[in-house]
């Protein structure tokens, strides 16, 4: 999958740093240069904002027919996750049996290898998710 090389330099992919709108306070991930709610008012007021990395599975699928870079990894679980900050993001959920995934599962981000560009190519890293280990205090 031809992802531009600049991708490896994007820190947000490692650190889960999104953007907070200085006007309405809403938090976005991936980072945005303009708030879709405040638009013009938000320009110049979008600030970096690290996500805590915790969220809830809103929907999920198990991929059996992967794209070229993920061949051999199947079946793997992808989920649409609602982060505690309110934004949604897409990622793999790992370290669990496919039948363990369910809507409402609490997950936390972890830093993992995403795929390798061929056997000698660059390794692409980024976030995945795993079941939250510690019980949460409400």
């Amino acid at each position: 999958m031809a992802v531009p090389r600049y991708w490896r330099e994007i820190p947000q992919r490692y650190n889960l740093v999104g953007t907070k709108c200085g006007s309405c306070g809403k938090i976005y991930f991936p980072p945005k240069v303009v708030c879709p709610t405040c638009r013009r008012k938000s320009l110049g007021h979008m600030e970096d904002c690290a996500l805590a990395g915790r969220g809830t599975v809103e929907s999920y699928t198990i991929i059996y027919a992967p794209p070229p870079h993920f061949e051999g990894e199947e079946p793997y679980t992808m989920a649409l996750i609602k982060m505690d900050e309110g934004c949604y993001l897409m990622g793999q959920v790992v370290d669990l049996e496919p039948q363990e995934i369910h809507i409402g599962l609490r997950v936390e981000a972890c830093f993992r290898r995403i795929y390798e560009d061929g056997t000698r190519g660059a390794i692409q890293y980024g976030y995945k998710f795993k079941k939250m280990e510690e019980a949460e205090t409400p």
């Binding site: 999958m1 992802v3 991936p30 027919a65 992967p66 897409m90 995403i114 795929y115 980024g126 995945k128």
Partner: peptide, 11 residues
């Protein structure tokens, strides 16, 4: 979205 969906293995 290639960078934020397909990159992570979404088809």
């Amino acid at each position: 979205n290639r960078e934020w969906e397909a990159f992570f293995g979404a088809t």
